[in-house]
Amino acid sequence: MATFDQFIASIRTEFGEQGAGKKFEVFCKWFLENDPEWSKTVDKVWLWDDYHNKWQRQDLGTDLVFRDNEGLIWAVQAKCYGEHRTTTKGDMNSFLNDMGRTGVDRGLWIRLSAYLSSHCDDFLFPLTIL
């Protein structure tokens, strides 16, 4: 069985950086549905293209949406950046804009990189970072 790092490396090799991002979104959907902790919270998960109540046509910030067991809607951003890349406020802007929309109750930022720029700290609430 491959390790998680091997899995991520294989999708980057096979699909390139852009394509790997889409495959990572599919993995994140699976993870939210199957992880022993998150699956207790999650009722239904949609990839952005499959979400029935989109607030815009394109994926400009939100990659997935899920409804939790309390009926709250979570916008999810999934970033498949390299582990040494720093996530910047610019990377977060369009997703943070989605967080202010009617119909979005919570946000979840899933990222592979270990680093956040210092400017991101001011904008993380009310995001859950995984």
Rank of each mutant, 00 (worst) to 15 (best):
Phe27Lys: 03
Val26Glu: 11
Ile129Leu: 10
Gly100Ile: 13
Asn69Tyr: 07
Gln6Ala: 07
Leu130Gly: 11
Thr41Ala: 11
Phe66Pro: 01
Trp74Ala: 05
Lys54Tyr: 05
Leu127Pro: 03
Val76Thr: 04
Val104Ala: 10
Ser118Leu: 10
Met92Cys: 04
Thr41Ile: 14
Thr128Arg: 11
Asp50Phe: 13
Trp38Glu: 10
Gln18Ile: 14
Ala2Arg: 08
Pro36Asp: 12
Thr41Leu: 15
Trp109Gly: 07
Arg57Lys: 15
Gln77Leu: 02
Thr3Gly: 02
Asp91Val: 03
Asp122Thr: 09
Arg106Asn: 14
Lys22Gly: 15
Glu37Trp: 14
Thr62Ala: 05
Ile110Thr: 04
His52Thr: 07
Ala9Pro: 00
Ala78His: 01
Arg12Leu: 11
Ala9Leu: 06
Leu124Ser: 00
Asn69Gly: 15
Ser39His: 12
Gly82Met: 06
Asn34Asp: 15
Ala2Pro: 06
Asp122Met: 13
Gln77Glu: 00
Tyr51Arg: 01
Thr88His: 00
Pro126Asp: 06
Met1Gly: 09
Cys120Trp: 01
Gly16Ile: 08
Arg101His: 12
Arg85Pro: 02
His52Trp: 15
Thr87Ala: 02
Arg67Asn: 09
Leu32Cys: 07
Val26Ala: 15
Ser94Leu: 11
Gly16Thr: 03
Ala9Ile: 09
Asp98Leu: 13
Asn53Arg: 14
Phe31Glu: 03
Gln18Met: 10
Val26Asn: 14
Ala75Gly: 01
Leu112Ala: 08
Tyr115His: 09
Ala78Asp: 03
His119Arg: 10
Leu47Val: 15
Arg85Thr: 09
Leu124Ile: 12
Ser10Trp: 10
Gln77Phe: 00
Lys89Thr: 06
His52Gly: 07
Gly100Phe: 12
